[in-house]
């Protein structure tokens, strides 16, 4: 498995301001250790996350994407995460249908007090991605040097 040897996945986690982001903060306060592969992006509600964010993240080089929000019933805005739930149940299936490994996209409910759950989830996702190796699907091809000039017919 030379492809995955020494590979450190890049993960972006869209975290709801009112729960998971606070939970991640609590994990830090408690000096919990979790893999540094994860980059936390704070959003006002998990319902703010647009499927486009996930596609764009894969395109720009992420190996895995997480969407984390409040447990159903706990949404700061009452109903935001119910929409999240439907939206990403579909999105998850669409990604698989388009050939993306299900291990690359995760949605989770993590409350502000569940620091340990945040740590465990990140560890689990990052371990899974380490086995999967780098993501190449949806990844944009970077033009380099003279190669970039070769276009011509039949792209």
């Amino acid at each position: 498995m030379s492809l995955t040897e020494g590979f450190e996945p890049k993960i972006i986690a869209f975290c709801c301001n009112w729960c998971t982001y606070t939970g991640a903060d609590l994990a830090g306060l408690n000096r919990m250790k979790y893999p540094e592969n994860v980059h936390v992006a704070r959003v006002p509600c998990s319902g703010r996350v647009n499927p486009q964010f996930i596609l764009r993240a894969f395109q720009k080089g992420c190996d895995g994407v997480m969407v984390c929000g409040c447990h159903p019933g706990d949404c700061h805005y009452s109903t935001g995460n119910y929409f999240t739930r439907r939206r990403f149940m579909l999105m998850k299936r669409m990604l698989e249908y388009n050939g993306i490994d299900p291990g690359r996209f995760h949605a989770r409910w993590i409350s502000g007090s569940e620091a340990a759950k945040f740590r465990d989830t990140v560890a689990e996702v990052s371990e899974r991605l380490r086995k999967l190796g780098p993501n190449t699907k949806y990844r944009e091809a970077l033009r380099e040097g003279a190669d970039a000039g070769k276009g011509g017919a039949g792209i």
Binding site: A148, G151, G152, A153, G154, I155
Partner: peptide, 15 residues
């Protein structure tokens, strides 16, 4: 059309 031969859909210009 054959215009892609001269004017590709996307092409790099400079880095």
């Amino acid at each position: 059309p054959p215009k892609e031969l001269l004017f590709p859909r996307s092409e790099g210009m400079y880095g």
